[in-house]
């Protein structure tokens, strides 16, 4: 018997995750009946949340897998190139400046401007033709700068409420996101995902080194630009509407790599599906646990992701010996 293709069973899990996200919430279980209030909850609260959960989870998993494949480093994660830090800074500045009080969409727009600015800065700093190491260094440097400026904004926050708003936003959440957020984020995420998914063969070729990849017809500077652009679009948009959500982009490719025969190209689709499943289910968990307090989505993914990563370290140690 042929083993079931991992794309198929992950697709099945994703369908169940979407259904769970649509059906479960503090307002009760199940899909809406005829009551208008229930329909309102469904279309205004649960539907955008499910769409954003799936898209943002997919963006995180996909970008993590693409960066790990391009940098040939299993520790790469979507925030490595400074996009997450830049988007966070942009959103925090939007809160700090009071722009969000004037109009609500200042928050995601600030995030998008921050993501674009940090990506441009990383590109400028790394230069047009540099290799992976320079790119990582530039990303770390810009992330560090964005982080420093973010804490400065927190430090100088005009009042405690603004500080709390910034901190909660930084933790990452899908609470109270509307269809407007879906319209802002989804075209950018889908465009970024399309760019990253076009790299399947190039990433496979890169796994035998730069010279072999070049011999197989890969244009090394074009693939680099595509990885940066795809990540910036997908992660910039995701962070701009949901805050920074950690661990999904790091852990999901690890978890699924064996099902892709360790080929970085095939891992892209799997990680997109897997990331979507995990973020949707984590968001369902957030809602189920809301009776015990307002948990943020980024906190839950970190709480799930960190122990998993510990387990990965122990497993790797056992495989590689002492």
């Amino acid at each position: 018997m042929q083993p079931v293709r991992p794309e198929l069973w992950l697709g099945g899990v994703l369908a169940l995750s979407i259904a769970a996200s649509l059906a479960i919430g503090p307002a009760g279980f199940g899909l809406p009946g005829k009551a208008p209030a229930a329909w309102l909850i469904f279309s205004e609260i649960r539907l955008p949340r499910a769409i954003l959960g799936a898209l943002i989870g997919a963006a995180l998993g996909l970008s993590g897998a693409a960066l790990q494949g391009y940098l040939r480093n299993p520790l790469a994660e979507p925030g490595l190139l400074g996009v997450t830090g830049g988007a966070s800074l942009g959103a925090v500045i939007a809160i700090h400046s009071g722009a969000t009080a004037a109009f609500a969409l200042a928050l995601p727009l600030g995030g998008l401007i921050g993501a674009a600015t940090s990506t441009a800065a990383v590109l400028l700093l790394a230069g047009a033709r540099s290799g992976p190491v320079t790119l990582i260094l530039a990303g770390v440097a810009i992330s560090g700068l964005a982080g420093a400026l973010t804490t400065l904004a927190l430090n100088l926050s005009p009042n405690p409420f603004a500080a709390v708003e910034m901190v909660f936003w930084l933790l990452g959440s899908l609470n109270d996101r509307s269809l407007v957020h879906v319209w802002i984020a989804s075209p950018l995420i889908l465009a970024g995902a399309a760019i990253l998914l076009s790299l399947q063969r190039d990433l496979d070729s890169l796994s035998l080194g730069d010279d072999v990849a070049a011999n197989l017809g890969v244009d090394l500077s074009r693939i680099r630009l595509k990885v940066i652009a795809g990540t910036a679009l997908a992660i910039g948009a995701a962070t701009a509407v949901a805050g920074s959500i950690g661990f999904v982009g790091l852990v999901i490719p690890h978890l699924l790599r064996r099902f892709a025969d360790h080929a970085p190209g095939r891992l892209l689709w799997l990680s997109a599906l897997g990331g979507a499943c995990v973020l949707l289910l984590a968001d369902v968990a957030v809602r189920l646990l809301s009776a015990f307090g307002d948990l943020k989505l980024g906190v839950v993914t970190a709480l799930i992701g960190a122990p998993f990563f510990l387990w990965l370290v122990i497993k790797t140690r056992q495989e590689l010996g002492p």
Partner: peptide, 16 residues
């Protein structure tokens, strides 16, 4: 499609 090249350095990044 015209030139096949085997580099001296044997690089392999993933256990495919």
């Amino acid at each position: 499609r015209a030139i096949g090249f085997l580099p001296q350095h044997r690089t392999i990044h993933w256990p495919m």
